[in-house]
């Protein structure tokens, strides 16, 4: 199995005034292609720092990080921006869609920063991504005309449009009710079954049970790493949930 993410003895220190905060104290983590990994932990455990480093938003103080065969640990700001553009898809808790900009244009955004993709191809790929998340009929809608779940689907389409090697989701169901959460998880499971590698930060154990493996952080260390048995199929949970009447 090909390793998409290969992290070894990774450390990250922050300097706040004269105090040094050890956010990560030597982490080894390997994520293979096709995995759906839950990153869990209390706040301050280092999971956000981990996600920032995996997402090439931040660079480690020490250690190596090989993403899709490329060592990205020592890369400059601009090199990391290019890597993010080509290899990573982000899904945020608060969706982060551009307001007063149509769903289609929001999804096109990552490709705007890739000059190899021309306008026509950009449009086609954005349309395909929106179709893949089931929003073919909402392309021209503005974010404020969409429900939370639909907005998050637009965000997922945006993370898919550049065909990344890994999708990073940061509490992607945090703002959604449980029914919509399972809808979104069902979509993620669907993508995962088609071969997408997904790293998903969450603190909800039920949500984590939709994935293939969980990694638990505490105080800058990984304290537990396990395959998830009795995996939840989000679509089945959804059917079992009572439909709420308005």
């Amino acid at each position: 199995m090909k390793a998409i993410i290969d992290i070894s003895s990774l450390k990250k220190d922050y300097y706040v005034g004269e105090v040094t905060v050890h956010a990560l104290r030597g982490v080894d983590l390997k994520i293979n292609q096709g995995e759906f990994v839950a990153i869990m932990g209390a706040s301050g455990s280092g999971k956000s720092t981990m996600l920032n480093i995996i997402g090439c938003l931040d660079r480690p103080t020490e250690g190596t990080y090989i993403l899709d065969g490329v060592n990205v640990a020592g890369m400059s700001r601009n090199e990391r921006a290019a890597i993010r553009n080509l290899k990573i898809g982000f899904v945020f808790q608060s969706y982060n869609l551009l307001s007063r900009t149509s769903a289609l244009e929001n999804v096109e955004l990552p490709l705007m920063y890739n000059s190899a993709v021309k306008a026509k191809e950009r449009r086609e790929r954005a349309v395909a991504a929106l179709e893949a998340v089931g929003l073919a009929d909402r392309m021209g809608h503005m974010p404020n005309q969409l429900s939370g779940g639909q907005q998050q689907r637009v965000a997922i389409a945006r993370s898919l449009v550049n065909d990344p090697v890994v999708i990073l989701a940061d509490e992607a169901t945090g703002n959604l009710d449980s029914r919509t959460s399972y809808e979104i998880m069902s979509l993620f499971q669907d993508l995962n079954s088609k071969g997408k590698t997904i790293v998903f930060v969450t603190h909800e154990p039920d949500i984590a049970r939709c994935m293939t493996r969980s990694v638990v952080f505490r105080d800058g260390h990984i304290i537990r790493e396990e395959e998830i048995r009795n995996r939840i199929v989000a679509g089945e949970v959804l059917e079992a949930l009572p439909v709420e009447e308005d």
Binding site: R77, A82, N96, L98, L109, Y113
Partner: peptide, 16 residues
Amino acid sequence: TREIGLRMSLGGKSMD
């Protein structure tokens, strides 16, 4: 600011 952060996370370079 958030838009700028988003654009950067999607691959926007400082120059962009």
